[in-house]
Design a protein around this nucleic acid. Structure first.
Lengths: 193, 193
DNA sequence: GTCTATATAATGATAGAC
DNA sequence: GTCTATCATTATATAGAC
């Protein structure tokens, strides 16, 4: 909501996000979510949401739009190819670190979506990742990067970035900015040869 | 088994491995496993195994021992630090690519183990990963690597390696050896700065 | 909006016939 | 070893009182 309050529906989504990350979607029951909301029995949730899978979909699609939004801002900028790639990578891992719960759904739990939504999600994610491939291609084309296999380079880069979600914790030793810079630089060195 | 046959128990484990990867542990029922074995109803499985979680444990512990075995062979060798690290990384990703189903359990599904086994697994995995950190430390100590934060370097390296399991397929464009070499080299460049 | 009670379906596991 | 039948449990979701 635009004011300082969060709707009941958003509170449910936030509770679900955290449980979906810590236990997994299938291991989280509607009663678990209700418990976290201090409601007695899962029935009350259905006054706000249509069902469990709808909750998963809302989290997944919200997450992917967060990645897109962060990426768009970088793509719109006027930077040299490699610096643009670097900024896109930093934007990507920043979304991961600032939205760890949603990122878990984005990376792992989305596969439990129903067929139609799962395919829609995968297509949109492919679209997002394709733009990284284009950034890498631009870097190779201008001679700043040396990646003989651009497809592999993209998979390598995204894989290295996405792994952050497995160990980064907000109360950890390194700040998000430090993690982002260290990771983006390590990936870029790998892509320069 | 030492001869050319596989025991019924092993057949069950192999069927379970594949289902645990493609659907996830919780989304796989004993009936699903029985279907894949062309058995009618999940009941027959219990003549061979004690239960579903025991199956998960068997796969998880077998996978971690495969990683250890591959790593041991490299550690026992007499190579300079960075080359030893390179070979350990290649051994690691080779296990992943040759055992994709088991790797899915090793990376994702082990969390559904019961408390005792889950903790035992995590401790053994930490032990395994610690040896990568020691290899990186040795590389830094001899001046061949430039990793100001060795803990981060270890997490970065393992993350980049482990990501392979998400996209590598045996019938893909690149051979396992190519993927292993490309990945290990990219990681090493990232660690040399 | 939340509560309790419940309908309906699926699950892991067991028992006993063959 | 495999089969069928079944038990106990748990799940999502709904209904109706308040």
């Amino acid at each position: 909501m635009s004011n300082g309050t969060t709707s009941r529906r958003d509170q449910i989504r936030i509770a679900a996000e955290e449980l979906f990350r810590t236990r997994g979607y299938l291991a989280t029951s509607m009663r678990d979510i209700a418990d976290k909301m201090k409601l007695s029995g899962g029935g009350s949730l259905y006054a706000h949401i249509a069902g469990k899978e709808e909750l998963l979909w809302e989290i997944a699609s919200d997450a992917i739009e967060a990645f897109f939004a962060a990426q768009m801002a970088v793509l719109a900028s006027d930077l040299p190819p490699v610096e643009k790639l670097r900024q896109a990578m930093i934007a990507h891992v920043t979304v991961i670190m600032s939205r760890l719960d949603a990122a878990a759904v984005y990376f792992d739990e989305w596969r439990h979506l129903g067929d139609a939504r799962r395919e829609e999600f995968a297509a949109r994610r492919d679209e997002y990742e394709k733009r990284f491939e284009l950034l890498i291609h631009a870097g190779v084309a201008c001679g700043a990067l040396n990646a003989p296999d651009e497809r592999f380079a993209t998979l390598y880069a995204l894989g290295a970035l996405n792994a952050i979600r497995r160990w980064y914790r907000p109360d950890g030793r390194l700040s998000p900015d430090q993690v982002a810079a260290l990771t983006a630089d390590a990936v870029l060195r790998g892509l320069i040869g």
